[in-house]
């Protein structure tokens, strides 16, 4: 599975590095397998508030899109970034369309396991919109702030 990672506002195809993944259930069960895990896989029906204390030990959190229509992980990612201060990688896994990647980036995702699309097409999709009306996890300036910053003569 090709992996795209976000650096600044650009995508770079990255060779899959060896992650030691653990499911939340295994992590909670404190099995031997979880001892040196680097990535936590969180299903999209999990209230991330309940894993807030577990986050510190992981370099990567993997959130799931069982179908592209199932958008729960957008909220999970924002909560991980904005409320629980997770600064590691948040990776999107599952049914991901290139037309969704911009919104995922805005919600705090910075790595994507993408099936078909090449980096160039995804990079182009990331530039589909120049502005955003609302603040989100990417901390870009919302349109209303740009308006306030406009020279008074405008």
């Amino acid at each position: 599975m090709p992996l795209l990672k976000l650096f600044g506002s650009d995508f770079v195809p990255t060779l899959e590095e060896p992650l030691r993944e653990v499911s939340l259930a295994d992590w909670r069960a404190k099995t031997q397998a979880q001892a040196d895990a680097t990535a936590l896989v969180i299903e999209n029906d999990i209230n991330v508030e309940k894993v807030a204390e577990d986050l510190a030990g992981f370099r990567v959190i993997i959130l799931m899109f069982p179908t592209f229509k199932d958008g729960r992980a957008y909220s999970q990612a924002r909560l991980l970034r904005e409320r629980f201060g997770f600064t590691g990688e948040i990776r999107a896994r599952g049914d991901i369309l290139r037309d969704q990647v911009l919104f995922m980036v805005r919600c705090g995702f910075d790595a994507f396991e993408l099936a078909g699309d090449d980096a160039a097409a995804v990079r182009a999709a990331l530039a589909d919109f120049s502005f955003a009306y609302q603040p989100a996890a990417d901390h870009i300036e919302p349109v209303w702030r740009r308006r306030l910053d406009r020279p008074a003569a405008a």
Binding site: D70, Y74, S75, Q100, M104, R106, A132, Y133
Partner: peptide, 12 residues
């Protein structure tokens, strides 16, 4: 304006 292209609420 707030709801247009809201990144979190496009796949409700």
């Amino acid at each position: 304006q707030w709801s247009t292209f809201h990144p979190e609420f496009t796949y409700l």
